[in-house]
């Protein structure tokens, strides 16, 4: 396709039109953008980097485990008390573990200059952000989801609570990663972004926490929980559409620190 766009009168006078590309100019091609090429390249790179530094994957999990160990020590080892607290505690700690790992989502790219290269890629930033968030979820949300049942056992979560715990964390941590990407993008150029990131993002996590923890506690008391999971699913769909846009916009701004 050949591009011959005449610009509006505000940006170009008739005078400059005549000095603009004449006949010998090569016609400008509209780039034939393959949406997935940038997504795939970034996904592959990030997942390779993540696997080369496997130790980092374990950190949120160890944090998760240690904090949960604190609960019986701080409150009571009594099974009934723990069972009552389990859904909320596991969810709150999963939320904190996600927050801790979010700081690095764009920061390493910012520090080594690959963020600049992302921003000047002709591929839409939306899909690149999605691919980075997906890798983040695979490296934090998914492992947290998988280890959560062990913590359920430690906090004597009733049997019927495990399925909703896994389901709600699998969906919910995805929402946490997506919303967190906005905060991570906003604070990427700041030297001490970590605490600020938690401050600006945590209030936005409230709905996810409410419905995630409620799904688990409803189930463990024998009530239906599918409604809560459906709402979490709706949050995920909405976050998937909106959050990468906001994060992409935030990156373009905050990279100029």
């Amino acid at each position: 396709m050949t591009l011959r766009i005449l610009q509006g009168p505000s940006s170009m006078t008739s005078d400059s039109l005549s000095t603009a590309p004449a006949t010998d100019t090569a016609p400008l091609e509209i780039p034939d953008i393959n949406l997935w090429s940038g997504f795939a390249a970034t996904f592959k790179r990030d997942i390779t980097v993540a696997f080369r530094s496997r130790g980092d994957i374990a950190n949120p999990l160890i944090f998760f485990l240690i904090v949960i160990t604190m609960v019986p020590l701080g409150i009571s080892p009594e099974r009934d008390t723990l069972a009552l607290l389990a859904p909320g505690m596991i969810w709150v700690v999963a939320l904190l573990a996600t927050l801790l790992s979010l700081d690095g989502l764009f920061r390493t790219d910012y520090e080594d200059g690959s963020l600049e290269q992302l921003l000047i890629s002709p591929h839409p930033l939306y899909f690149i952000v999605i691919s980075k968030v997906l890798v983040h979820w695979l490296m934090t949300g998914l492992p947290l989801t998988i280890t959560a049942p062990i913590l359920g056992v430690m906090l004597s979560l009733p049997n019927q609570g495990y399925m909703p715990l896994i389901a709600s964390l699998a969906i919910g941590t995805g929402v946490l990663s997506l919303i967190g990407a906005i905060g991570s993008a906003l604070t990427v150029g700041l030297r001490k972004g970590g605490l600020l990131l938690s401050l600006i993002i945590m209030p936005l996590y409230v709905p996810v926490l409410i419905f995630g923890a409620s799904a688990v506690s409803s189930a463990s008391e024998g009530f239906p929980f599918v409604g809560q999971l459906a709402i979490l699913g709706a949050f995920l769909a909405m976050a998937m559409i909106l959050a990468p846009f906001a994060a992409a916009g935030a990156l373009r701004i905050s990279v100029n620190g």
Partner: peptide
């Protein structure tokens, strides 16, 4: 390879 994937966009 990453750079190539990120930049191959135009027909050229």
């Amino acid at each position: 390879r990453w750079y190539a994937g990120m930049s191959t966009a135009g027909k050229t």
